[in-house]
Simulated scan of single mutants.
Amino acid sequence: MTILSKRIFDKIKLDDAPFLQQGAIKVTGVNGAGLKVEGHAVMDIILDGHKYTHPIFVCEVFPDAILGQDFLLKHVSAIDYKRLKLNSRNSSLSCWIASEAEMSCRVEVSETTVIPPHSGAWIIMKIPRANKLAPVGMIAGKRDLPPGLNIPDCIIDTSEEVQKINVLNFSPDEVKHHCNMVLGLAESLYIHEGVHDRCASVYCDANADASNSQSTHLPGHLKDLWQRSSKHLSIDESADLAILLAKYQQVFATSSADLGRTSQVEHRINTGTACPIRQPPRRQPLGKREIEKRRDPEDAGTGSN
């Protein structure tokens, strides 16, 4: 999936920000931890001056944005890894590597160690390809460790020759960690300073064409209808429905007070040769009298029933 950082999404002006659709979507990071998903919407991605409309998920992630495989399969015809280029039907986009620290490395046990019950120990570890990490790294323990074991997240100096990690054993039995056993993942840790594009820019175009503008600015009285109707629709189908509702929003009443008589249509009933008759008005049925009493005063005079 293609992801936009919530930090970047919050910088979009409120009037231009697209409406985020909610859904039962779970996103897991490379370390196995779940990522909070704020929602998704159809936005415009600008690559080398060309616009690509694509569904984007807003999550709490560190990178500004991530172009997912869904975007690459739909819009990118070829990836030239040697020349670092993305070739689309419209252009050839040059890419660059912000740092060699954009990778995750396994954290393995260097030598077999036994941890007594209800205790902790510093285990000598090794990180293959640690030279590809930033000078400062962060270690996150595996989520599927044996019951009772815990590895607190920690910060390390990746340049040190001997690395140790604290492993806690809360179980009543001793635990043996064999050589080359994987304990977790090490990732680069650094401060992101200044405004620096780490990926292709992703933003909501305030001057987008009418259809995209309508889908991202759905009137408030139609949002509930859209959400309920999109329950079993795909992302693209949901976006199409939003465009349809926004296009014909004038045919939907904004409230009960918006209902009433119309002069747009004339209705004729052919009574043949029958003569007109006069009847006294009928009383309201008992079941409807309480409803009539609770009627919104704003509806009075609209002629709605």
Rank of each mutant, 00 (worst) to 15 (best):
G34A: 08
C199R: 01
K223F: 07
A121W: 01
N169W: 03
N31Q: 04
Y81P: 05
Y81F: 14
G301H: 01
A274C: 12
K293R: 12
V107E: 03
E187N: 11
S5R: 05
I97T: 07
I127C: 00
N212M: 08
K176E: 15
G29C: 05
R295P: 06
G194V: 08
L225N: 07
S171L: 06
G137T: 02
P172A: 08
H196T: 13
D296N: 12
A239R: 01
D153E: 14
H196M: 12
N169A: 05
N305A: 07
P55D: 06
D209F: 11
K74F: 00
N169M: 04
R89S: 13
D240Q: 11
E100W: 03
R198N: 15
K13V: 02
G260E: 12
R289N: 03
R268Y: 15
N180L: 14
S238V: 04
Q214R: 13
F9P: 02
N212F: 06
T273D: 06
A33H: 14
N131I: 02
R198H: 12
L286N: 11
L86K: 00
E290L: 13
S255K: 11
T273A: 07
L14M: 07
L86T: 00
S255L: 10
I79A: 15
L222W: 05
A101H: 08
D16T: 10
P135E: 10
L93N: 01
Q279W: 11
S234N: 10
I191N: 15
D16H: 08
S188K: 09
V195G: 15
H177N: 04
G32A: 04
T53F: 06
S256E: 15
Q264F: 07
R283N: 14
P285F: 14
W226N: 11
S77T: 14
V182P: 12
L149Q: 06
S5L: 02
N31V: 05
I56G: 01
R106H: 14
T28G: 03
E237I: 03
A130W: 00
L168G: 00
E187C: 09
S255T: 15
S188V: 05
M181A: 06
E187F: 04
K13P: 02
H178D: 13
I156H: 00
Y248N: 13
T302A: 02
P117L: 03
L14Q: 07
Q250N: 13
I156W: 01
V202F: 11
A65R: 04
A134W: 10
G49C: 03
G32N: 06
E187P: 00
Q264G: 13
S255C: 10
H217N: 15
F19I: 10
N90P: 02
D64K: 02
G141R: 01
A41I: 00
D15G: 07
K132C: 09
A274M: 12
P18V: 06
V265K: 13
V61Q: 03
L149V: 09
V167M: 10
A121K: 08
G303Y: 07
G23W: 04
S119Q: 13
Y190W: 09
A24P: 04
L245E: 04
A65I: 03
T28K: 12
P146R: 02
V109Q: 11
R7K: 09
T271E: 04
G260C: 09
H177S: 02
H232R: 12
K51M: 04
T273M: 03
A208D: 15
R143H: 11
P219T: 02
I191R: 15
A239H: 07
I124T: 13
G32M: 06
V76Y: 12
V30Y: 15
L244C: 08
L245Y: 05
K293C: 07
V37F: 09
